[in-house]
């Protein structure tokens, strides 16, 4: 496991994007490509965010140590969050800035999504060795923001559904499990 270079994670992280591009090129994306791309990007971002949150419990409870890949997983997640928002603004809203902005301030699920993006932004910007050195212990504190960010992202995902589907509840439960595992007291 340790032999897999970190670069491979970045490369693997591009695979879902490649799949979307393939679907668009081959016509498999369906008759509403914009919504499909937008939703797929958001869902992929969630997978990587959850992946990032899974690394600590994997190490603690299953002794699988993927810690050296966590930065890559987080950055890939942020990459998909960014693409998701970009597709919403450009392809979906058609750069109707006024309506996009109006929707943003009036619609709670959009606010939550953008809030998640804003919380993740400083984390992505400080996901480098120089920042870890410079920020010292504050780096750890800053990166606790990932918890509210993912919580917001999950609620954003559930809230945009017309009616919450079983799949939505599974994501919420999954997030609950990832959080609960952190609350398990350590044996002395």
């Amino acid at each position: 496991m340790r032999k897999v270079p970190v670069g491979a994670v970045y490369l693997a992280g591009l695979a879902p994007l490649g799949w979307i591009v393939w679907l668009v090129v081959s016509g498999g994306i369906g008759v509403d490509p914009v919504k499909e791309i937008e939703h797929r990007l958001g869902k992929i971002a969630l997978w990587f965010l959850f992946g990032g949150l899974a690394i600590t419990p994997l190490r603690r409870f299953l002794r699988i140590d993927l810690l050296r890949y966590r930065r890559a997983v987080g950055l890939v997640a942020f990459f998909y969050v960014g693409l998701h928002v970009l597709v919403w603004l450009v392809l979906d809203m058609g750069m109707l800035w006024a309506q996009a902005l109006g929707d943003l301030v009036r619609r709670p699920y959009l606010i939550l999504g953008v809030a998640a993006l804003l919380l993740l932004l400083p984390l992505a910007l400080t996901s480098n060795t120089a920042s870890i050195r410079r920020l010292g212990r504050n780096w750890r504190r800053l990166h606790l923001l990932v918890y509210p960010a993912v919580a917001l992202a999950v609620v954003h995902y559930l809230w945009q559904m017309k009616v919450v589907q079983p799949q939505g509840w599974l994501w919420l439960a999954g997030f609950g499990v990832l959080m609960a595992l952190r609350a398990v007291p350590r044996r002395r």
Binding site: V31, D32, P33, V34, I37, V90, L91, D92, M93, G94
Partner: peptide, 14 residues
């Protein structure tokens, strides 16, 4: 206020 007409492909924003 607005709607997306299905069938515009990738450039449905138009």
């Amino acid at each position: 206020a607005t709607e997306r007409r299905i069938g515009g492909g990738l450039f449905a924003f138009a």
